Simulated assay, not measured.
Amino acid sequence: MTLWDDRILELVREIGAGSPKMIEDTGLVRVSRQHISRRLNRLANYDLLTPLSNGIYTLTDEGTAYLQGDYDAEAGEFVEDMDEKKWRLPSETSSPL
């Protein structure tokens, strides 16, 4: 994940849906439209965005959780709350033999 990925996700969240042109036109992501297009595709591969027709993408539940720090896109899993994990009983965390 890159700095631009986070910014692209934030913009898609703010505007509700985004295409490479829409994101480029904001002037807030200072890379080429082609680069934005590649990153949108990569973010969809991580299940953070859903591609719609005509190159438009929307944020998924995983994308929203990622922006909140509750989803690890590279691992493809939700991040467990450390406080919750700390207070679990040993029998809840160990697997049966």
Rank of each mutant, 00 (worst) to 15 (best):
I56Q: 10
L49I: 03
S95G: 11
W4C: 02
S37I: 00
P96Q: 04
E77F: 09
D25N: 13
G63P: 03
N45L: 06
L89P: 05
I56H: 05
R38V: 05
S37W: 01
R39T: 09
K86N: 11
R38Q: 13
D70N: 15
F78I: 01
R33V: 06
L89D: 14
V31I: 15
L28H: 11
L40I: 07
E84F: 02
R42F: 00
R13C: 13
L67Q: 07
W87F: 07
E80I: 09
Y71D: 05
L52N: 08
M22I: 08
T93N: 08
W4P: 00
D61P: 04
L3C: 05
D70F: 07
L49C: 03
R42L: 01
T93W: 00
G27I: 12
K21F: 02
W4N: 07
D6C: 10
G16H: 15
H35T: 09
I8F: 01
S94R: 12
W87M: 04
Q34V: 13
K21Y: 11
E80Q: 15
T64W: 03
R88K: 09
S91Q: 15
R39G: 00
R7D: 11
R7W: 06
P90T: 09
E80L: 12
D6M: 10
G63V: 06
Y66A: 14
A75V: 07
A75C: 05
A17N: 10
F78M: 02
E62M: 06
S37V: 00
L48Y: 02
K85M: 06
L97W: 14
M22A: 15
V79N: 04
R33E: 05
G63C: 09
N45H: 05
W4T: 08
